[in-house]
Design a protein around this nucleic acid. Structure first.
Length: 587
RNA sequence: GCACCUCUAGCUCAAUUGGAUAGAGCACCUGACUACGGAUCAGGAGGUUGGGGGUUCGACUCCCUCGGGGUGUGCCA
């Protein structure tokens, strides 16, 4: 019998194949194999219930029929997997310890894992669009989720074998620059002079410009003119614009470096400024776009909302907006990258925009006969304060990302000094940096992305319970055991006896669930599913660690426990790496 | 106004997408071997899943309705 990497999927296939040969079932039957409550088994097939209902049959009898056919076929070795019918028609599968042991031996190395996983999405080409901050503004807590979630999704897709491009679609073009240039000119700000904190100064210039244009229609007119001059390539404004972006990008990349966020491309909105004309032309030529109230828009007569609320892709003054550049971006990603799929990671306030964008692309590409990439909006909840309003610090400004990370690292350092006073100062500092940054990232990732995000220092900086340090600690203890025994963590362990204790079996069972958890996280693009799994795994390890001593004298027992430690380490490190979180030797 | 999202233990969140007795962390209480790192583990207490109705073998999940909170809604991104 095959020892499948993803067990649920393996059972699913076997059951499907058997059902296909039974008269009682037809093509509409799907076994729906899921993880089961441990009281009943390891996996359960729920599909018989739904199928019986749809066809007005007795589910229990149908399940009996299916299980009998399964037994007769010998496709599942009953010495490895026990099966039974329960309740109204569930089919339960119980893996015995010999199966678990064989699984652990079949998938032993990093290469075994990545090879098994990479078959899933191989051949797919996917662009992930994440972070995408606006120039001339500092990143604050509101900018945390997109890069953190986006990086995790990119890495998971890549692990599954897809060819993934990470693109940072920086907001470096648009009306903000008119206001900024206005402010620079009126305040005589010297972009080339030395400034202590240039990005902060740019941000306050922008605020000044924004206020001025709000209060004074003449200033607004002037800002528009500056923008038009920039868009027409006027030399001085282009020079301002370049300097502004240079300063911004330096600031952004300091944060990315700290968080370990990596992009393949950073094609900002400005990159598409000479590509929007084609969008205008093609939308007009195909009749997808129309002129309305002076602007160019797309209506969707069949849509309950967008028949009245159009997608505005060219302003009445002829200028582009972010809809224009987003449209041009989709086309570029199709033609330059041959993207089969594009994933946007932004907050949920942009849901309407992306829905309209996707609908427009569909109409437009259909009319032109272009291949339509799969378009997905991976949205996340907004960051709120305790008052349910967008989060602010005491001064009224949002908390800066850099300050948040500094605080996290500081708190971690205190704990390191308390728990591990013997380490060198340098080492403590490095550990604190890793732990602090990991805690913040994990706190963000462990929460279902689509719910709103209530910011609290306490939550993002927590170091107890379901947090990154808990996972890192499990890793540090495993490594410590191997150091003590003076054995490499990937040493080939012969003479391992088969699993025996409750804690060993519990941990082994959890280990085999990794592919299922990963699949689940990826099917919905929800990294928190992986977090939940890793936390449960670390929990099962801690239970095991406290219950069964690893370094015992009797080698067959010691080796089987070491083997479980190795697999736990492998999965924890792989999983955290997929989430974009660095791991440690000691802490 | 219209549309969408949301409401689960004191707090912060899960719940395998309609499955079996709704689970974790924090906080609180009780315990743990001088055995490999106690940033740990074992246990306890804590629930009318916002209210009401419906669909069915089965509902936190789907439908209706009422209420609380939030977001979006033609020239910001």
């Amino acid at each position: 019998m095959t020892i499948w990497f993803n067990i649920a999927e393996g059972i699913e296939e076997v059951v499907s194949a058997i059902a296909a040969n039974l008269d009682a079932f037809d093509d509409n039957f799907s076994p729906e194999v899921r993880l089961a409550d441990p009281r009943f088994g390891d996996y359960q097939a729920n599909g018989v219930l739904g199928f019986a209902k749809r066809n007005r049959q007795n589910p229990r009898a149908l399940a009996e029929k299916l299980i009998e056919a399964l037994r007769n076929s010998n496709s599942l070795d009953e010495n490895l997997i026990e099966m039974s019918v329960a309740g109204p028609g569930f089919i339960n599968f119980k893996l015995n310890k010999e199966f678990l042991f064989q699984w652990l031996q079949s998938y032993a190395t990093k290469e075994d894992y990545s090879k098994a996983a990479a078959s899933r999405y191989s051949g797919k080409k996917i662009v992930t669009d994440y972070s995408s901050p606006n120039s001339a503004k500092q990143m604050h807590v509101g900018h945390l989720r997109s890069p953190v979630i986006g990086e995790a999704i990119k890495r998971m897709l890549s692990y599954f074998g897809a060819e993934v491009i990470g693109d940072n679609h920086i907001g470096d073009w648009g009306t903000a620059f008119g206001k900024l240039i206005l402010a620079i000119k009126r305040k005589n700000f010297d972009l080339k002079a030395k400034h202590d904190d240039p990005l902060t100064e740019l941000e306050s210039l922008y605020k000044w410009g924004n206020q001025a244009t709000d209060e004074d229609p003449k200033a607004l007119e002037e800002a528009r003119n500056e923008l038009v001059k920039l868009q027409n390539g006027e030399e001085q404004n282009v020079a301002y614009w370049e300097a502004i972006n240079h300063i911004s990008n330096l600031g952004f990349h300091k944060i990315y470096a700290r968080l370990g966020i990596e992009f393949d491309y950073e094609l900002g909105e400005s990159f598409y400024r000479d590509k929007v004309q084609r969008v205008y032309d093609e939308l007009e030529e195909t009749g997808v776009g129309e002129k309305s109230e002076g602007a160019w828009v797309v209506f969707f007569p069949d849509h309950k909302r967008f028949k009245k609320q159009p997608f505005l892709y060219r302003k009445s003054d002829g200028a582009s907006n972010y809809a224009s550049t987003d449209l041009a971006t989709v086309l570029y990603r199709l033609e330059a990258f041959n993207a089969g799929e594009i994933i946007y990671v932004t907050d949920d306030r942009q849901r309407d925009h992306f829905e309209q964008l996707f609908l427009t692309v569909e109409k437009w590409f259909t009319a032109k006969g272009y291949k339509i990439p799969k378009l997905k909006h991976v949205y996340f909840g907004t960051i709120l304060g305790k008052d349910r309003k967008p989060v602010k610090s005491r001064s009224g400004n949002p908390i800066l990302l850099n300050d948040l990370l500094n605080e996290a690292v500081e708190r971690s350092l205190k704990i390191v000094e308390e728990k591990s006073p013997d380490l060198r100062d340098e080492e403590k500092q490095e550990i604190a940096e890793t732990v602090g940054v990991a805690a913040v990232r994990y706190a963000d990732l462990m929460q279902n992305r689509s719910s709103d995000y209530v910011f609290s220092w306490e939550k993002l900086l927590s170091l107890d319970g379901n947090t990154a340090p808990y996972l890192l600690y499990a890793i540090a203890r495993i490594k410590s055991i191997f150091r003590k025994i003076e054995l490499a963590v990937d040493a080939d362990l012969k003479e391992a006896s088969s699993l025996e204790t409750e804690a060993e079996i519990g941990l082994a069972r959890k280990l085999t669930e990794f592919p299922f958890a990963l699949e689940q996280a990826l099917s919905d693009l929800r990294p928190h599913q992986l977090c939940i799994y890793l936390y449960e795994l670390a929990g099962a390890y801690s239970t095991f660690y406290n219950a069964d001593k690893v370094n015992v004298k009797y080698i067959p027992v010691r080796n089987r426990r070491l083997m479980i430690c190795q697999r736990t380490l492998l999965i924890l490190e792989t999983g955290l790496n997929l989430l974009g979180i660095k791991t440690l030797e000691k802490m």
